[in-house]
Design a protein around this nucleic acid. Structure first.
Lengths: 219, 219
DNA sequence: GTCAATATTATCGTATACAAGAATTAGATT
DNA sequence: AATCTAATTCTTGTATACGATAATATTGAC
């Protein structure tokens, strides 16, 4: 069903939700959106349905659709699952990854190292993303890869935030080295636990960010 | 967006896909479906979109939607992920489950035992489902619970098949005992590995079934 | 002045009509 | 007879119109 146009519209709205231009609870009016994108309500409704399927939006019958920003608890839950999925990818990839895959990981890691040296967070983030996606791609399980990518996309804006914490870039890079080593040696358990830690710590760091902003808000 | 009616229609079609009444590649004609469910094409298209989101159906632009039965490889992949998710649930539940939760698990296990004694596969399957769902419910991660439930639903018909293999009922029950023990003692690693095994073996058994039917088909 | 009830308005849910593109069939030509 | 082309038909994609429901505003009574 997903028509091309609806996908474009959904992506546009998704961007605005992920970048917080649309706040939690904001109502998405079909007429306004139709006018704004210069289409009828039909493709708008399709787009909204897509957003609902990926959980970014909530539908109340006969009321309308409302953007649903995940609360801190749900975010932590999602990071917990993300860690589990990446760990799963790592475990499988450890016994299935090719030499070319290892090389690709090392290449991205080199870029990361460079980024740390120049304190270039953007560059780090991009290479980091390719690093993780490479692991997914070599887990030998297409279904797992897609599921993991989907959750990655959803957490992407939040993963990014915590990278700005002081020292996190270097720490993240160190963890990458350990992950590559485990993968190249085919150490399934080590790869799994290293990735679990690597991603889980992001959830925790993120948690710290939340606590900090809560304190600031209270002051 | 998901209107009530579209959900009902989607469920009906989903049932037919899962029970193989609709075969892989079958085209779903909007007009026919509209006529059959006595609604207009609009809610039909909504329902098809829902099915697409859950991966049961594929959409080719300007061509139509086609049912997409997972092939053997994808099924194995899905079982692999299922095992990982259940394992994750088990690991978390081991440190988070309540006494009431343990009691519930034991209760379902008692029913399972009874079902094995009377060789009642239906009864076993129902109690087995509640057993697993109880674990999901006590992992303390609502997001994980929902994701796991979603995949469970999709694999349900295939999980069922392999239970009919000789001796599998008893074996499954034995594994349940081990799982409950690990959970009640708070042994996170043991609970995780026990569940990983318990579910992964289903994928393997299912694989055996596939091989058997392939041999039969070749004869 | 406040509360309640009713009327009005706005928005969603569904049906239908129309447009555009793909598939199929029929006809013509080689 | 086979193949290529053109035309028709069938199906999807989109717009719009209509009906139903819920939110809101207004009016009247206490």
């Amino acid at each position: 069903m997903t028509t091309r146009r609806a996908n474009i519209i959904a992506d546009a709205i998704e961007q605005e939700i992920l970048t917080r231009k649309l706040a939690d609870g904001d109502r998405l009016d079909e007429h306004r959106l139709a006018e704004r994108f210069d289409v009828s309500r039909t493709p708008i409704r399709e787009a909204l349905q897509l957003l609902q399927a990926s959980g970014l939006v909530e539908h109340h019958p006969r009321r309308g659709v409302f953007v649903r920003q995940p609360g801190p608890i749900q975010l932590l839950e999602m990071f917990e699952v993300m860690a589990g999925l990446e760990s799963m990818c790592g475990r499988l990839a450890a016994s299935r990854i090719s030499d070319a895959g290892i090389e690709e990981l090392q290449k991205q890691n080199t870029i990361c190292r460079e980024a740390v040296a120049t304190q270039d967070a953007d560059m780090y983030f991009a290479a980091n993303e390719r690093f993780h996606h490479t692991i997914y791609a070599h887990c030998g399980n297409n279904f797992l890869e897609l599921e993991t990518l989907q959750l990655y996309r959803r957490l992407k804006p939040f993963r990014r935030q915590q990278l700005h914490l002081r020292g996190r870039l270097q720490q993240s890079l160190d963890e990458h080295e350990g992950i590559v080593e485990a993968l190249s040696k085919g150490q399934t358990d080590k790869a799994a636990s290293a990735l679990l830690q690597h991603v889980a710590v992001q959830g925790e760091k993120f948690h710290r960010l939340l606590a900090l902003s809560a304190i600031k808000a209270a002051e």
